[in-house]
Write a protein that binds this DNA or RNA. Structure first.
Lengths: 230, 230
DNA sequence: GCATATTTGTCCGTATGTATA
DNA sequence: CTATACATACGGACAAATATG
């Protein structure tokens, strides 16, 4: 009974037996949430016995949930060793920012990008308010919403899904940093600036600014990432 | 023993017991292949008992493989009804082409796009040869390689994976067409034309040409898709 | 509309093989 | 090298939902 990892489970059974979502889906959602908010830390192992005990589900169900999160690249399987919360390498960070530059800049340069303005403005305000009270986790959430608003202007469900998955992956890297403050603070003002450029109907300039913005964010993240050892 | 769907399985056991890939992965690969080459037709149900019998694996293993292919959007689950080979709607086709325009055109417009030239040239030659002998399935394969070569110039593993998944999804729509000939024939020459534009170092013009190309392909596919009913 | 058969969703027990202390 | 812990994979069971006659 002195089982490990009581961060998971919280004692109560997860299944409200609402029977709208399958147990597998509920488990995948629960695990995803705990990965993204850092309760399950990058690199830590997800042992089947511990998690089945903590979540109150069978190994089969858990393993199906694992497959979902492995496909989302939040977990990795090492054959016959187990399933682990993914650790982002520097190469991953570079790759993710390459995709972000491609998609976000193309989305922002298009005339339709102004469609995302209301949501972008709202995200900037939320971020400022959260920063004022020192809630940098919420600043991170607002930043994600800001960039999703940019790509939402493309109007493609697949672009939305891809960006959502990409930004979720990126959170794995954020968690390796000591303070979210240093990461997000420089970009509060620049988000605001992008909004203004779009309000003034200068989408192409905004796109160019965003490219440099993403370059800087990538460098900042890489700089704080590399000193971390396995 | 007069079980259905002997297209799958072929009598022999799939597992060579090489134990380099997991059974789940082998099953997922086998199902993916049969979906993409049309043996498992769009809209058809994947019954657990039939497939476990045909593949010689347990239900648990099969269900894990299902999750992989559901994540790839080649299968869809209808709760308490079963798992089906995905049917593409017109909206899906439009969405896929929107993403293709975004990614492929951005990739082609970049100076680095010439890096994909050798692979693009090879794909064009393969396609011509296959068309000459009426092998339109292989023409389709070569066309996929052609477009993957375009996006490979970005040098991003994630862009590659996204494009691969996208083109796999599109095959679900191709299969709904009677003749692959009508779909691919118009684009043999245009692929060749794109290669020439790139050889002449005119990537931006090539990108614009590709945008129109993808528009036309989308319209052609939609036209032959809509008359099909549930 | 109802009773029945089928199929999915989920759990459990267990055997085997692999990695690690 | 042995022992242990764990992942992998199988089969059986049963309830619940769905399809069928």
């Amino acid at each position: 009974m002195d089982r490990v990892d009581e961060a998971i489970g919280g004692g109560a059974r997860l299944l409200a037996r609402l029977d709208r979502a399958s147990t597998t889906q509920v488990v995948a959602d629960a695990l995803r949430e705990r990965i993204l908010d850092g309760q399950l830390r990058s690199g830590s192992q997800c042992q089947e016995l511990q998690l089945t005990a903590a979540l109150g589900v069978s190994r089969n169900t858990l393993r199906e949930a694992f497959q979902i999160l492995i496909a989302e690249r939040l977990l990795v399987r090492e054959p016959h060793r187990g399933v682990f919360v993914r650790r982002l390498e520097a190469a991953d960070v570079r790759d993710i920012y390459a995709v972000r530059r491609l998609i976000e800049c193309a989305a922002l340069a298009a005339p339709a990008s102004t469609r995302g303005l209301p949501e972008m403005q709202a995200a900037v305000e939320t971020a400022h308010a959260a920063a004022a009270r020192g809630d940098w986790y919420e600043v991170g959430n607002a930043d994600v919403r800001f960039h999703l608003a940019i790509t939402a202007s493309v109007g493609s469900a697949r672009v939305d899904r891809t960006m959502r998955a990409l930004l979720a992956e990126l959170r794995l890297a954020f968690q390796l940093m000591a303070d979210a403050h240093a990461l997000h603070e420089p970009f509060l003002g620049r988000n605001q600036q992008l909004v203004e450029m779009l309000e003034q109907r200068r989408p192409v300039e905004a796109s160019i600014e965003l490219a440099g913005y993403l370059d800087d964010a990538e460098q900042l993240l890489l700089a704080t990432l590399t000193p971390v050892e396995p």
